[in-house]
Design a protein around this nucleic acid. Structure first.
Ligand SMILES: [Mn+2]
Ligand SMILES: [Mn+2]
Ligand SMILES: [Zn+2]
Ligand SMILES: [Zn+2]
Lengths: 131, 131
DNA sequence: TCTACTATCGATAACGAATCTCATTACCGA
DNA sequence: TCGGTAATGAGATTCGTTATCGATAGTAGA
């Protein structure tokens, strides 16, 4: 049976406290700095579980997995600032349909897709100009 | 200055000999098995160079970088069979424009995107059914 | 409430992809 | 041909992630 532990809840809350995507190691550091004695392996396990349960989204960036608490149940993608990590959830039925149609057109079934948009947010663009 | 070595050419050819995406380690094994004494670090460096020069495309899958010799100069995406690796190059101006427009609509500049479609190719679907 | 079972935890070892080091090699312009 | 130096490669190293396994604690049932 699935047990409820303060560790899982701590990870869930810490994840919700971040606006953008964060790594397991970063989250572990934050929790430790806040006084929690949680272990690193537990953070990795909790994040993997949250992702499976659909409570968190994940993406690969520069060789590491990043996680973010996202709108549950709702399939969506992300617009991410590559400088500060600011993340905007985006929906696009047109892209969803395009992906399915393209797969079907080539005889592929059980299609899934990875769609992420990276850029420099307005604040970071201004900051870069100013310097 | 950029020098031409048999190692770079060997990597380029080995990459072209594969239909789908392959990892640096796999490519290195293939080269070694074929009798080449090429070093692993050299394969990594050659693939990175090919990607920068636009002669190869890369994507992240299960924690490792995969490479594939692709149509040069032409920006495109991929439809990949998650079972056999069969890859189809796909173009979609609609998706390109959607990505740019979405980024701009949220004040993001210098937008880039990651778009990959995974599925089961017709051959693999039939093979799975038959068993 | 008290037990017993066992899911979960966590310190640490292990793993693996990728990069770095640096002595050696060999490409190529002069 | 020759010299400068880009490139190579064996091995060490980095670093994110997973596996190990004894200890801990959540929870169903008595
Ligand atoms: Mn989608
Ligand atoms: Mn594109
Ligand atoms: Zn930003
Ligand atoms: Zn296939």
């Amino acid at each position: 049976m699935k047990r409820n532990t303060w560790q899982r809840e701590a990870v869930r809350e810490a994840l919700g406290g971040n606006d953008g995507f964060v790594s397991a190691q970063t989250l572990h550091s934050e929790l430790r700095d806040a006084g929690s004695p949680i272990g690193l392996a537990t953070v990795y396990r909790a994040l993997a579980d949250l992702a499976v349960e659909g409570e968190a989204d994940s993406l690969q960036a520069e060789g590491e997995s990043l996680y973010r608490a996202c709108t549950p149940g709702q399939h969506h993608h992300h617009l991410i600032c590559r400088n500060c990590g600011l993340t905007v959830e985006i929906e696009a039925d047109a892209v969803e349909q395009w992906a399915q149609a393209t797969a079907a057109a080539h005889g592929f079934s059980q299609a899934t897709h990875v769609v992420d948009v990276f850029g420099l947010c307005a604040a970071c663009r201004l900051a870069a100009q100013g310097s």
